[in-house]
Design a protein around this nucleic acid. Sequence first.
DNA 1: GCAATATACCTTGCAGTGCTATGTATATTG
DNA 2: CAATATACATAGCACTGCAAGGTATATTGC
Lengths: 128, 128
Amino acid sequence: MKLLTRNGSKPETTDKWEAQLRKGCLELAILASLWQEKLYGLEILRVLHQNSNLVLAEGTLYPILGRLKEEGLLESEWVEAEAGHPRKYYWLTPAGKQRVISMARFWTSFTANFDGLLKPILSGKAGR
Amino acid sequence: MKLLTRNGSKPETTDKWEAQLRKGCLELAILASLWQEKLYGLEILRVLHQNSNLVLAEGTLYPILGRLKEEGLLESEWVEAEAGHPRKYYWLTPAGKQRVISMARFWTSFTANFDGLLKPILSGKAGR
DNA sequence: GCAATATACCTTGCAGTGCTATGTATATTG
DNA sequence: CAATATACATAGCACTGCAAGGTATATTGC
């Protein structure tokens, strides 16, 4: 049985929640990272980590890239690297660009609704 | 085999994504709905629907309420209704209030990071 | 009285998703 | 030629939401 997380502490429900929140956003995040330029797998992880503080595992990334490609939102191509293992670069298809835009719009209205729900909490008023 | 959604259309991947996005936020939404007042089950659904455009099924709500209670974030009590079936009212424990606050803070910083990622897309600049 | 309806709570089984762990391939370094 | 670094890939597990179906209580129409 597995009871410890990587840092050796007991898994806490707070951690689980944060993971859960990330979950729903990963596809959008990955598509969005490709908005401006082609990237290869591990590079996507680095970009998301550095630009948006979003950390995901390789075992999470590759299946998602596969799904997105199968849906026709991404294309990919192998490219010989100057050194080491060849890299598989991904970029958005026209359908993919359309999709990112509509997802981003949905995200915006969704979070706006949510912010309304959280306003009483973050404005410092006590609940009863 | 099941191929149709409730409205009779084919299930689209966009729908799946929207569902996925909601998923990570439900616990926070439910806890937040209880910030100001005690509510009973179905009432929570109505509040979230009307105030935040957030629709969830009963089969989703009750298990979550059970989890949250088990974690010590909620308390509950049966109350005779003026008419019909008795209602089970829920409210936040002190630990629950603490938790909502920390979740709301995490939400705020998380969405801020994300908005940065989406800015190039929503500002109307074309990708290449 | 008693079926039909409305309100409310609860549970079961399934499907979708991310993550840990592990595996493979290529090239460089000691 | 082992060890290391980079990169892509997959299998099995655990968690979560949801559709569907079930139970309980009270009111309404006949």
